[in-house]
Nucleic acid binder design. Sequence first.
DNA 1: AATGAATGAGGGTTCATTCAT
DNA 2: AATGAATGAACCCTCATTCAT
Lengths: 213, 213, 213, 213
Amino acid sequence: MTATATEASAPRLRADASRNRERIVNAAREALVELGPDVPLDEIARRAGVGNATVYRNFADRRELVHHVACSVMRRVSEHARAAMAEEADAFQAVVRFTLAAAEEQISALCPLVSEHADPNHPELAQAGEELTALVTEVITRAQQAGAFRTDVGVGDYLVAVTQLTRPLPGTGCLTAEGWSRRHLLILLDGMRAPARSELPGRPAGMEDLKRP
Amino acid sequence: MTATATEASAPRLRADASRNRERIVNAAREALVELGPDVPLDEIARRAGVGNATVYRNFADRRELVHHVACSVMRRVSEHARAAMAEEADAFQAVVRFTLAAAEEQISALCPLVSEHADPNHPELAQAGEELTALVTEVITRAQQAGAFRTDVGVGDYLVAVTQLTRPLPGTGCLTAEGWSRRHLLILLDGMRAPARSELPGRPAGMEDLKRP
Amino acid sequence: MTATATEASAPRLRADASRNRERIVNAAREALVELGPDVPLDEIARRAGVGNATVYRNFADRRELVHHVACSVMRRVSEHARAAMAEEADAFQAVVRFTLAAAEEQISALCPLVSEHADPNHPELAQAGEELTALVTEVITRAQQAGAFRTDVGVGDYLVAVTQLTRPLPGTGCLTAEGWSRRHLLILLDGMRAPARSELPGRPAGMEDLKRP
Amino acid sequence: MTATATEASAPRLRADASRNRERIVNAAREALVELGPDVPLDEIARRAGVGNATVYRNFADRRELVHHVACSVMRRVSEHARAAMAEEADAFQAVVRFTLAAAEEQISALCPLVSEHADPNHPELAQAGEELTALVTEVITRAQQAGAFRTDVGVGDYLVAVTQLTRPLPGTGCLTAEGWSRRHLLILLDGMRAPARSELPGRPAGMEDLKRP
DNA sequence: AATGAATGAGGGTTCATTCAT
DNA sequence: AATGAATGAACCCTCATTCAT
């Protein structure tokens, strides 16, 4: 059994099983963004073109599925951060580019899911989060060091505000992301440019302020 | 006075019944903001300290309860708009004051409810919405005419962006409103000050762009 | 207190209370016939123009209300039996007349109620039933003794068959009684005339066969 | 064979699922006849030996279940009509045989269901009804043409009267069908024999008179 | 005495999850 | 391994009945 050898280390999936897994995660992302966090798992199975039990074979429960969807999105957004820093000469322009790219991934639509419907302490999710966090921090810090980004605005402020502005508009499918959110993000970023036009209450929020007890 | 007028049509409520009705609406607002639009009505009843059927006696179904919660909040926010215009000499400062006051009413938490869980065409709700809309438009327009507010930002832009920034942060109770949203709102408003610091794509969104087919 | 004297013996009702009682019984009969045995008591109260609790003040529960409705109808039908025998010379014609009169009282609509929703052993109901039974038996027996009514058909047969034919036609309000049931009753009665046109299985059913264990 | 054809459109049921479906329909027929049209679906599930949700998997709601029960019974009764005409030489005897056979299927118990608890316009139900109607009309018409059946009694009269006589006696399980209804049906049929023994008010009711607006 | 309001138990229905094929 | 079917828990809502005015 040559196959058995590899199975031991990381139970390597059969080709079709692996394909199913991916289709489920993609279907889940779409369905979650479109129908919200309470979308029936049967609906996800239907979109993926598999039986509902197959979802459970791959993901023990909803939390685990959400977990993988979140990891997947975070990794893609991290890529955007790397690309923005590598390819944009102007530090503030890198912030703008990254912000718009992240918005298109609808990363924010997944935030409600993570906190409520997945375990934020899971190592894999934590690691994807930390990597993303580090990259975002770098993007922002560079712009601040270039004197283009207000220093009374922290990375935590940036992340939460951007997330909020790109969340799907309530009673709609999710159309805002495509249509308006670009305008609103740019307005917000204008407000984040140095010099500051007003005095903010409280202190700049860092990443550590996002942790919840 | 004004309250009595609103409910004048009903044959006059008994003292205790009236108290219950109010407790239910208040419990509903809290629960809706805290647990989201799918909060079980039994939970609302529990918080209000009444049996579940009492909720149904007062409000035929979830839609009707949401309807009343929404009307109630809208009226209070309209009051804030009037006060801001009456008491603030500086036109932009009126925008700031109104924005922060509306945020504290958590009006944004109710938007998802109205669009999905109530009938936006109900006369009472429509009227409350129109009154609020007219007032917000006035607040913004005054600031624009004073040369303090970007003219490439419309009332629709303002409303959606502010709504988004004040929505309860997903997997949390709702704490963001109190804590951070003030900072984010002020940053956004800084981005809305004239002169514009960047060029926005698309056209300013007016109130009419909020209507959905 | 001249009034008090009479109250002692049989707690004589105040004029308005007595009127209410009667209105409730009448509303109940109508509602029961029209909407079926599961009609909400609130609907009966509404039709009677009283509060729902007034129904309970007069009748401890649904069973008791049904009880009184049944007694009331039975007494009226008994009157028809007496009148038919007194005023019809032909014995079979007395059967016909009584049958049609009873049908118009919709007595049959109430049978389902009595057996299921009231206590058939209650003295008052039992007595009304016995009186009615005795009268019907007399009507039938006279016709048999006159040689006009099949002797292989018993009073029990007659009662059940007539009851069935005059029950409200299922998915309708109750229209059959008025419209068609006259025709069907007359056809049935034609089948009951002597001489018999066929041989029936079993034995003639008497009143005693209606009792159920 | 015939059964398979009926359900041919569905992608093919698993053996156990098919068994369950049938058990549910049978349990439903029994329970509906015994407890009436308001029988809790949980009771039906209990009798069928399945969980309540299984009923919903097979039949979207009560209406759909009733629909299938009604179709099933109608088809069986149509068979009786065909058999009676094929095997009985005497035309009136065919009426008698068919009537008793239909009674044993307790078809009448289902009438209240169809009109109120199912969609009488559903194609499948409508077709089953039309087929049955045509067959019954033929059975009666043949007897009339043979001079054995009153011509002042229409098919509509026949159907309604027979239906009423075979309905389960109200506050009882349903025992009357087996026990007494045979006697009453035969008496009624005696009344329908030619020549007529009395003059009926109104006009003979045809099938078209059963339709309701 | 009579009312309007409050209640709790129960039915219909949906959905996450488990089981048998 | 993958599927379709089965399940029970939870929610919404109604109604008989009791309570406070």
